[in-house]
Design a protein around this nucleic acid. Structure first.
Lengths: 150, 150
DNA sequence: CATTTAAGTCCTATAATAAGACCAGTTGCG
DNA sequence: CGCAACTGGTCTTATTATAGGACTTAAATG
């Protein structure tokens, strides 16, 4: 029996996890954001079994998250690059990063940082209301599908 | 051989996925944000095997993402509630939601929506610079651990 | 040109998840 | 109050997902 699927879910969170929620996918996306492009680079950086990596890369290409492009150094090889759809996963990756930074390191324990081009730390992810006011989880609720504008 | 672990990673994304990246965890967190609290509610809503749910709930409690509290209706049962640490996963869930909404539904296909208390749609997640300027993925880079302030 | 590297494919073993039987405690109703 | 239904699990087995590594072909390198 396959793992339970959520590809038909009305909840976008569930659909997203159905698409990219299996082990390795988001780590690959993270590496792609970090600039990795070659099969071997992903494989070495992640320490992942090559068969698994191959399967995952194929899935991400089919999903339109990654695309195969000619190697940037002019060789005969191909590389994997994030598509627009893949780059739109940036807030997900940043969300995971900021949660991890806040909660999974001891005080003073070193971890990588996300910085802007000037090397300055970035701010915290923010969910604005329609008018720009910052919202927290308690300011929001999920409206089920079918409860559209009345 | 167990699934590759990233609990010692210097990358917060990898640590976060190590903690909450296995199948079911984020779906449970999503449901907790939606207000589910009872074992049976999670189980019925997710269609998950009870043994699996039990395992996941235990792990999330040990991680400090959920806590066990007396049932809110005064019965002898207990409920699962998000902790502060759990609620800090809100941007991750919203990131997944917004990516899913943007990329995984056909035009006009119904899905649930995140709205503010007035029922208005919320804006898009935003990563500000230190000074408040909105950043995109191309405005940022990851600085490896050990490359701290010079 | 020979050797090394790169990008996989493919197979087997182990771990993770699905499915469901079973059990003890609690609740609600007649 | 007794009993049926509900609740919150525990536990076992079967199937799928991931780990590990051998092997192959093409390309790059010295």
């Amino acid at each position: 029996m396959k793992r339970t699927g959520f590809s038909g879910a009305e909840c976008p969170v569930a659909r997203a996890l159905d698409a990219i929620g299996d082990w390795w996918s988001l780590l690959i996306v993270r590496d792609a954001f970090d600039g990795l492009r070659r099969f071997g680079d992903f494989q070495k950086n992640l320490g992942i079994a090559k068969g698994m990596l191959s399967t995952r890369l194929h899935t991400l290409v089919e999903l339109g998250v990654l695309e195969l492009v000619p190697a940037s150094d002019g060789s005969a090889y191909q590389e994997y690059a994030l598509t627009k759809r893949g780059r739109d996963l940036f807030p997900v990756i940043v969300g995971l990063r900021q949660w991890g930074e806040a909660h999974l390191y001891a005080r003073g324990e070193p971890h990588s940082d996300l910085v802007d081009q000037a090397g300055q730390p970035v701010g915290q992810l923010l969910l604005p209301s329609r008018t720009g006011r910052p919202l927290t989880w308690s300011d929001t609720k999920v409206r089920k599908a079918g409860a559209r504008k009345r």
